[in-house]
Each structure stands twice: as structure tokens, then as C-alpha cells.
Computed example of a mutant assay.
Amino acid sequence: MAGPAVASSSAPAPASATAAAAASAAQQLPGLKRDQVDRAVASLLKHVADQRAKAASTQLFDEDEIIYLTIALKRSPHPGGPKKLKPVRIPIPHPLFKTEGAEVCLFVKDSKGGEGHKAAKARLAKFTSKGGVSKIIGLSKLRTKYESHEAKRQLCGSYDLFLADERVLPSLPKLIGKSFFKKRKQPIPIDIRAANFPEQVARVVERSTFMAPPAGSCVTLRAAREGMGAAAAAENVLAALAGAVAKVPKKWSNVQAVYIKTGESVALPIYQTLPDKPVRIEGGGGGEGGAAEGEEDEDMEEGGEEEEEAAPSKASKGKGQQQAAAPKRKAAAAAAAAKGRQPKPAHGGRRR
């Protein structure tokens, strides 16, 4: 497949407007420094350019590199809960693709005879350039032709974006495999029966990126492209970050760190914060009850130390009393011997 067409924008917004939007996005994220984002993007693009120059003879870099945004969360939003399938749309100022050049594949519902597939083709044929869709694949064909892992991997690499009839979205994860999710190419639901179908495709392709609903402690989404330049890439990163954080439970207060990277590079940090102070919880209690139990444990420990300190003093006091009583016992024993009888043993001891 030829390299995807990259757009500066089909209807480019004024530079001042996008810069103002980026500044506004940065202000919504306390502690995030715009200059740190600019430096990280510039370093990442320089690294990609150096790698491209080294591999020029092997033609390994025939496409623009995608810049990914990774958000590490302090707490998982839904630990152990069901995983949501519908990707979340995040608006961005500069498009990753343009409709005229992007390779877009659409998954549709059909019967074993492929009737739904044929109907979808006939419907899209009414639109200019098929509404921006390059390939239509029915579920029956997806089950048979793309059954093997290798076939699914090749399908994933053959197109820039994947759309899906919103009615078949729940059936797709088992049919497309893990490659789509690893490459952040999970299908985006769309209403193919709507009259504004081409407008839906244009909005998906040119004015959006998408985030899988967070199920763990890390969120990754496509934010920019190498070919759009450092300034536009930084603006996209800020817009994608602000949009993604708005969809995360507890929003910015739940963000531990933010990184940017390409598919093969190391992750460059653009924001980091210290983790929350751990809270000690004893037993099943929590909150104030757990803290009270912890304080009670400390009091008990301190009381134990006091008892240990008091124990030696008690032992020494008892020993002194015994030493003081020894002469009296000797005198009583002498008096008893003089009277010709044995004295009673002290403390109920055994007679000698």
C-alpha cells in the first residue's frame, strides 16, 4: 500500500486560532508546561529524521511516522469491570489524514449470501468517491477470508482507518483479533444509513482522533504525524491531551504522567507528578475508621513498651523486699530453734 496522504487540513484553520486553542488547552492542565511539549516534539521529530537518514537505503520509512500520546493514570477507572468497545472521539485542530487520499475500510452487516454487503456497496456508490470509503467488507467474508492471524495482521496494515456499521460493532473484537487494538486501529462506529454519510466519514478522517475507553491505568491514542511539522504536532498533542483527560474519571487529578512517542522510539515525558500518598486501611474499615484503628494500634504498641519498661522496675523492687526480709526470717528461725520447733516455711514453701 502506498503511503497515506497527509493533510495540513482540507479547510485549514487560521494559525492564530489553532495557537490560541492550544494555549487554552495548556491552561486547563495545571503543571503542564507548553515549552516542555514543544521541546519533546522537536526532539522526537529529530530522532525520526535521523533514523530515516540511516535507513534511507532500505526504504523502511516510506510513510510518515505517527506520534502517539500516552497518559498514565493514578487509578484504573474500572478495575475488573467490563471493557467498553466504542472508541471516544477527540477533536484535533490538524488532521492526521485527508479524505481524498486516506485508505478507509468499512465493515458492514450482511447475510451468508452477502446481501447486506451488496446493499452497502450500492448505497455508497451514490456518493462521490463512495463517501470516502476505499473497501467494504461484510462480516461473512471477514469470518472466512480473514480467519487466520496472519490474514488479520495483513488486513490491519492495509488501511489507514477502519469504520464499522454501528450495528455490528459488538461482533468485531473476536473477528478482527488483537492486531487492530495494538495498532490503535479499532473500528469506529458510523451510521451507514444516514444521508450525511460522507460528512460522517470526513469528520472521522480529518477532524478527529479516537481513544479506546480506558480499562486499565494507561491510555494511548494517535495525536499527530511527523509530516505536519513541529508546531502543528505540538498543537495536536495539547488538544488530544485536553480532550482525552476530559473523558477520564477524576480528569486531570487522576493523571500521573504524560508521554509522547512514535511506534519504535522511547517515550519522552512531557508531564510527571508524584503519586498520591498511600492510605493505610486495617481490616475491612476504611477512611476515618481505618485511621482510627491505626492510631489505636499505635497506642497499644506504646502501652506495650511502657509495660516492658515497668517490668524491670517491679522485679528489682521485689528483690529488694526479699533482701530486707531475710534478717527477720533468720531471727525467727533462731527463736524457733531455741524453743525446739521448726519455723513455718516462708511463702508456703516445702518444709525442710
Rank of each mutant, 00 (worst) to 15 (best):
F210D: 05
M211E: 10
M211T: 09
M211R: 09
A212D: 14
A212M: 15
P213V: 11
P213C: 14
P214L: 12
P214S: 10
P214D: 05
A215T: 12
G216W: 00
S217K: 13
S217R: 14
C218D: 04
C218V: 15
C218R: 11
C218G: 02
V219Y: 02
V219D: 05
V219M: 07
V219N: 05
T220D: 07
T220P: 03
T220H: 01
L221N: 12
R222F: 03
R222Q: 12
A224H: 05
R225N: 06
E226G: 00
E226M: 03
G227W: 03
M228D: 12
M228Q: 15
G229L: 07
A231E: 13
A232R: 08
A233S: 13
A233N: 01
A234Y: 04
A234V: 05
N236G: 09
V237F: 04
L238R: 07
L238N: 07
L238H: 07
A240G: 12
L241S: 03
A242M: 02
A242I: 01
G243V: 04
G243W: 06
G243R: 02
G243I: 06
G243K: 01
A244G: 08
A244L: 00
V245R: 08
V245P: 02
V245K: 08
A246G: 09
K247G: 01
K247D: 04
K247T: 09
V248D: 02
P249F: 10
P249T: 12
K250F: 07
K250Q: 14
K250H: 13
